[in-house]
């Protein structure tokens, strides 16, 4: 693997119920000259024409788009995982999609995206787990930690629904516990 690939940084954010509110606070707080990719995996309904991408794009000065399969992972872009597909990362830094079984009752599953990103980006990966009512993401944060990346859980006191970040914290897989403003500052400093 090329040296520049080993050193690449990426942020992958997972969220479920209540995470949209956190994202709407987080995205405007990010620097407009951020030079790493930010990938967002949230559980959502599969209804076509979902306005999620538009809603988030309004809040960000960075380009926001839904992932297409085999699309290169570019710096300075915010990517949203499409509904009803698992999101995976290839070693050549392109996205892959997968329609296999739901994991934690979810597709996309945060665990699946975290684990795949960890295998490719290793220590360059920061995984962030936001609000939700599901155990998805905990195992993924553990794998991120095992492969040298940084695992962050949203401070449950600040989450709309505390179960998901709390589950990760109780399983001792989160390196940091942060509120949304602290998460923004952390990403801005990467």
């Amino acid at each position: 693997m090329a040296q520049d690939q080993l050193n690449s940084k990426i942020v992958v954010i997972g969220g479920s119920a209540g995470s949209l509110e956190a994202l709407l606070d987080l995205l405007p707080a990010l620097r407009s000259d951020i030079n790493i990719p930010i990938v967002i995996v949230i559980h959502r309904k599969t209804a076509p024409g979902s306005p999620l991408v538009d809603v988030l794009a309004i809040k960000s000065s960075l380009p926001v788009c839904e992932v297409d399969e085999k699309e290169p992972v570019r710096n300075g872009h915010i990517y949203i995982a499409p509904a009803d597909y698992h999101l995976l990362f290839e070693a050549d830094h392109t996205f892959s999609l997968d329609v296999s079984e739901k994991v934690n009752y979810s597709r996309p599953s945060i665990d699946v995206a975290f684990e795949s990103a960890a295998e490719v980006y290793g220590a360059g990966l920061t995984g962030i787990l936001l609000s939700g009512a599901n155990a998805d993401g905990t195992h993924g944060l553990m794998v991120i930690g095992e492969l040298g990346g940084v695992a962050i859980a949203q401070d449950p006191d600040t989450a709309e629904i505390s179960y998901m970040p709390e589950h990760a914290i109780n399983n001792h897989v989160a390196h940091h516990i942060m509120n949304v403003q602290q998460i923004a500052a952390y990403i801005n400093a990467l």
Binding site: K70, E90, S96, S100, E115, S116
Partner: peptide, 9 residues
């Protein structure tokens, strides 16, 4: 086949 999915499976 795309490697990421193969790895996972």
């Amino acid at each position: 086949y795309a490697k990421a999915s193969m790895h996972r499976r």
